[in-house]
Design a protein around this nucleic acid. Structure first.
Lengths: 201, 201
DNA sequence: GTTGTAATTGAGCATTCGTTCAAAAAGGAG
DNA sequence: CTCCTTTTTGAACGAATGCTCAATTACAAC
């Protein structure tokens, strides 16, 4: 056989997520990537093909991790709606926390806004991911409706997009560096929107 | 005297807004700027100082125009709240419209997300503009509260930020290229959020 | 050890980046 | 027309960009 790889693909990707999430696609140079991954250009290109390829894989890894985070919040609650509300409050809280993450805003949204008119391939990927997230949240809300948590008459798909827009808005507001209490209030107010669609009991 | 400037500063800025709004700061090269403004580098630098300076002025011009748009929507209604609701629906509508603007998302938010960790000066400017917008909307909502349109107990500042987050979310969703009807529904649902804070009569 | 293979290295590629500045061009005043 | 001032031009700069590849290194098998 031969020499074994010094770099773990997964940990390298995690580091790439950190840099790209923080600085975006255009804002991250290969020089910075080399430093962040502690890899030389040759190794990076042998492993990921190109800056585009690395970014694409990093974005996918980010999305996967994001999905796991939502699942964690939901696990803590019997009620789906309360789980989602906790998720919103959790985002608001982490937005107040300094240095909790490379950036407060969502990397998928950052990518979509940055690349929609400059890099169609990335924009398509971001759009696909957002559609997939919409799909899985829609299933949750539909489930909640069937369970009787939400009023029967709601359009779960439509409420999903309202919720998705809340998350986008909340995390973008996070980038404003507002007072933590203000972010918590905002998270509460967004959680309260869902109450308007709940069944009373 | 001497030769007079061939370029009108204001129309040049409008063209710059168009390019920067579409492609962002990093996504717009000087070559593209020269083409968009139909100006040679020397003239651009003599007029605006630098790419940064041009972007900064363009962002300010964009914000000013955005403020005028909101005022137009408000003029059409006796009720402030209904004016704001119409503003939300208007955004949703224009997001569905193809080629209505260089980009569906807000240039200020795009700038904030792009520059928050790469270009502090731009991020600061974007933050200042967002704070100013928050201020003027807060004055509107406080006015609406005093007029009795909104329940007396509301925190107008807090509701302002919820509204601002709606706008950010709505316009970011616009970048997803969803069906126009879907965007209209989303705008309606966001407008309906405000109903929850209105006085009944 | 020696050999064979695969991973890593980093100097250096062509290109593009934002920017400068000496020269050319375009008027108004005399 | 001749000056004088101001604006415009575009070639060219140094630095940075994404990327390549021949040489080197490190390990497993023998």
């Amino acid at each position: 056989m031969a020499r074994h790889a010094r770099y773990d693909r997964k940990t390298a990707l995690e580091k790439a997520v950190g840099l790209f999430w923080e600085k975006g696609y255009h804002g991250s140079s290969m020089k910075q990537i080399e430093q962040a991954l502690d890899m030389r250009p040759g190794s990076i290109y042998a492993t990921f093909g190109s800056k585009d390829g690395l970014f694409s894989e990093a974005l996918a890894a980010y999305a996967e991790q994001g999905g796991r985070e939502l699942a964690v919040h939901l696990k803590g609650f019997d009620s789906i709606v309360e789980g989602l509300q906790d998720y919103l409050r959790g985002i608001a809280c982490s937005c107040g926390d300094e240095n909790a993450a490379p950036s407060r805003a969502c990397m998928i949204v950052k990518t979509l806004l940055e690349s929609s008119n400059t890099h169609p391939a990335l924009a398509d990927q971001a759009n696909s991911i957002l559609a997939a997230i919409e799909q899985s949240i829609a299933e949750l809300l539909e489930q909640a409706r069937v369970k009787g948590e939400l009023v029967q008459s709601i359009d779960s798909r439509r409420l999903t997009r309202l919720l998705q827009a809340q998350i986008m808005g909340l995390r973008s507001m996070g980038e404003r560096n507002l007072d933590p209490q203000i972010m918590r209030d905002l998270g509460d107010d967004m959680a309260a929107i869902l109450d308007g669609y709940r069944t009373q009991h």
